[in-house]
């Protein structure tokens, strides 16, 4: 029983991380048609912010966490301004290349000005201890991660349904020009999408850092790769799809970890991607493709 609950929580916390990052990718994609490959570097910015706090001997975990999230949001907003705004009207390939370029530039900045080697960050270890709920031992970090993600998803849902700007973000995924024709400034819609994306990356960063305890220039690469897969599985550009894809991917990954024999342990990802491929054969546009969501007749 304990083992099952532990593995379910394991799957939920994996899924939560992917869902946070996938949502960040999806919200930008939905309005810009752009896969933001620099998303991983936003996570790294959060990580390096923690390093900066440590070197300033600021250990207050509240300050470290809030600071990292704010830094990620600021970085995301800055990218929108300096890199993506100029190519907003360009064709999608240009946007994609810009995102790749930004990603490479940022990684090299980290390499040059910080360090190519991992830097330890210990200020978040306190998040991870063993707790006991109803006689079952659980990792607190996983509980926090799952709960935080659920709260964030609910908050995001409320924002997207209850505020004019939130409605505009949803509408912009369908017809950005028409949103402008209601008088809402396009720049505000882009800014809020990148802010939310940065916020989600910053939150994910806290949990990634608490688990890994160190940051290097490639910190965000693997998580964002997984989030990208989650988006594809869920239906690219669909926000519910991103959440569904994230949790599904977490579940499949943990199921593989649990079920594969020791000898195949190193092949988990291969099996995970095989299952992803099978899902995509069944639903080539992802499970909740945006077209379905918008009520288009397919």
């Amino acid at each position: 029983m304990e083992y099952i609950v532990q593995q379910v929580l394991n799957a939920l916390s994996f899924g939560a991380e992917y869902a946070l990052l996938a949502l960040g990718l999806a919200i930008v994609f939905s309005i810009m048609g752009l896969v933001n490959f620099a998303h991983g570097e936003i996570i790294a910015v959060g990580g390096y912010t923690m390093v900066a706090f440590a070197s300033l001997a600021i250990g207050n975990p509240m300050i470290v966490m809030v600071g990292a999230v704010l830094a990620a949001m600021l970085a995301s907003l800055t990218l929108e301004r300096v890199a993506f705004r100029p190519v907003r009207k360009a064709d999608p390939t240009t946007g994609l290349l810009t995102a790749f370029g930004v990603s490479i530039v940022l990684q090299n900045l980290f390499l040059l000005f910080v360090s190519p080697r991992p830097i330890a960050v210990t200020s978040l270890y306190f998040l991870d201890w063993s707790i006991e709920i109803a006689g079952i031992r659980l990792a607190s970090l996983q509980v926090f991660e799952t709960l935080t993600t659920i709260i964030v998803i609910i908050a995001l849902m409320l924002f997207l349904r209850r505020t004019v700007l939130g409605l505009a973000v949803r509408a912009a995924s369908l017809d950005f020009e028409m949103v402008r024709l209601t008088g809402i400034r396009a720049n505000r819609v882009f800014a809020i999408a990148f802010l939310i994306s940065g916020l989600l990356a910053g939150l994910a960063c806290i949990f990634i850092m608490a688990r890994r305890g160190s940051v290097d220039p490639h910190l965000g690469f693997e998580p964002v790769l997984k989030a990208f897969v989650a988006c594809v599985v869920g239906g690219f550009g669909s926000l519910p799809g991103a959440v569904l894809g994230g949790f599904l991917l977490g579940a499949v990954e943990v199921a593989m970890l649990v079920m594969l024999p020791q000898s195949l342990g190193g092949m988990t990802d291969a099996f995970v991607f095989m299952i992803v491929a099978m899902i995509l054969i069944w639903r080539p546009d992802g499970i909740l493709s945006p077209a379905v969501e918008k009520g288009d007749k397919l």
Partner: peptide, 11 residues
């Protein structure tokens, strides 16, 4: 079309 009637008016 992905918003409700009321949400369209709100926008």
């Amino acid at each position: 079309s992905n918003l409700t009637v009321l949400e369209n008016l709100t926008l």
